[in-house]
Design a protein around this nucleic acid. Structure first.
Lengths: 195, 195
DNA sequence: GAATTTGGCTAATGCCATTAGCTTTACGGC
DNA sequence: GCCGTAAAGCTAATGGCATTAGCCAAATTC
């Protein structure tokens, strides 16, 4: 009686609702089956197992994040684009903290390709800086580390003091743009003789 | 026959070895008991359960990291101290990637106090910048986000391109120090009229 | 309308955490 | 040197979960 009208996509959707409402640790095949009104083993007709489901969920989250980042960058460039990208990223993570936490230890092979698209968006956001080759890669890595680091810490409630988080994030964004602006000096200074 | 000479500390030690060798997901009471040469329920004489063990492990890792950060900062100040702190942090995470991953979703209450000490070290490292009150908090938050973000991504193998990671990290450090150096301008610019 | 594929089911297995209750060991006081 | 007690181990039992196997009904297709 295929009445539940399930599908891999629908299963991922239910999984996301569980993650949102009860946290990543509550994501269990048994819980998904419960919401679907179906016996647990039935899920195996749509998904290879819990591990694959986790990967699919992570992929979906990463896709959403990519979408948001891409929209944020649209029609902007330079510092403006960068700040918009960072703001969009953070606000997604803040809006869906549990969902974002799923990303934290997502299985690598499954999320790699989704991540590549996000990296593409970041590269585009950095285009105005005229970074070439490796320099662009290093910049993207820093951008990833910065945004992801802040998002993870905020999502898991690691910032426990009362100071305004928006201000902290503004400083972080300032670090990125000012650091990129002065990046040439850095490598110059590095190769300068005398300490 | 209390011959196994276990203790909470010894249990945490075994747990750390498991984490290092088989990854955080392999940390299970049954695995620890196996290494200890003891039946699983015996562990409950030393540890309240798996959740508490995880918390203790995270606490230990955070303590190690704090130790390393503190040593790195010793006898240095300013940019020098900051870079040493960042380098020590990253090298710890790179040396013990699985151990570092444990930190990623550690139970909050258990790791909060250990984290406070680490924050203290970071505040000390920033002392030379003369940041006052909230400004210091914002700076510490950025430092945490930056180092943690990079460490997490590196530990889980998220940087998949061939470019030298040391160079990426140097750029990140440059962002931090140059951002802090120019932080005053930022808030000035923010309150400047005319966008 | 019949055949095949699809999506659901029940039953069974095994691993893990956790609890309860028993037993033996080590140790401190006499 | 003996004895009582508390600590640290054990076995047995329970329950949740993932996963596999094999069955059966419903939908889809010819």
């Amino acid at each position: 009686m295929p009445r539940a009208s399930l599908s891999p996509g629908a299963v991922v959707g239910l999984a996301l609702r569980i993650v949102d409402e009860e946290g990543p640790d509550a994501l269990t095949l048994s819980a998904v089956a419960g919401r679907a009104g179906v016996a647990t083993p039935s899920l195996y007709k749509h998904v290879r197992g819990l591990a694959e489901l986790r990967g699919l969920v992570s992929g979906r989250v990463l896709a959403e994040l990519t979408e948001i980042a891409a929209e944020a960058v649209l029609g902007r460039s330079g510092d403006d684009a960068l700040r918009a990208l960072m703001d969009g990223w953070r606000s997604y993570a803040a809006r869906h903290p549990h969902r974002y936490s799923v990303l934290v230890q997502a299985p690598l092979p499954e999320t790699a390709e989704a991540g590549d698209r996000l990296v593409g968006v970041m590269l585009a956001a950095l285009r105005a800086y005229g970074l070439e080759g490796s320099a662009a890669i290093h910049a993207v890595r820093c951008l990833r580390a910065v945004t992801h680091g802040f998002a993870v810490l905020e999502a898991e409630g690691a910032f426990r003091l009362a100071e305004d988080l928006d201000e902290s994030y503004a400083l972080l964004a300032h670090m990125v743009v000012s650091g990129l602006r002065t990046a040439r000096e850095m490598s110059a200074a590095d190769s300068t003789p005398g300490r």
